[in-house]
Design a protein around this nucleic acid. Sequence first.
DNA 1: AGCGGGATTTTCT
DNA 2: GAAAATCCCGCTT
Length: 192
Amino acid sequence: MSDNLAFLNSSADSVAPLLLGCILERQIDDKVIRAKIVETEAYESTDAASHSFKPKTERTSVMFDRYGQLYVYFTYGMHYCMNIVVGPAGHGAAVLIRAAEPLDQASYDILSQNRHGQTGVNMTNGPAKLCQALNINKTLNGHDLREAPLKLLPQPALGPNEIQQTNRIGISRARSLKWRFYIKHSPYISKS
DNA sequence: AGCGGGATTTTCT
DNA sequence: GAAAATCCCGCTT
């Protein structure tokens, strides 16, 4: 029994760049959205900015599950953000998916509908925008990304010269860590 | 183009 | 009671 997500069984900062270029396949009723991940951030258990820095709570329990699960949390009173859990059970690490770009016209159209008419990069150039565009909420918290209706399809790793590594965005602690990764020149990144 | 504030609710102190 | 891994709108240059 092979596990095509075995590459997720590592630390968040080493997996985060590997997720760039991978494809999210979201199925809603009879429609399928395909989007390429273009921006990620790593969160580790040793990292003061991570939800897993403190002991496990009901909210954060999925982050301590085995790699390959989806961790969805609710924040700022109105937004969801999606993370891919990495590492072995009990470790407490995940990669935040901050931006993605549609792979075909049909996907583009559905994303635009879910975003209430927004078009272009404004559909998915941020973690909460992406969740709204993919119709992801807490009902998918703990979902296994090997299965429908949301699959992660691995892709060959990008070359180092295609990846930009910088500081994370929107956090107050552990600001010095360079744990944000994005595909250079992608128009869909949340901020340059 | 860039800044400032409001929205809105879960979670933990 | 305050902060939160954010976004959007309106105002000012």
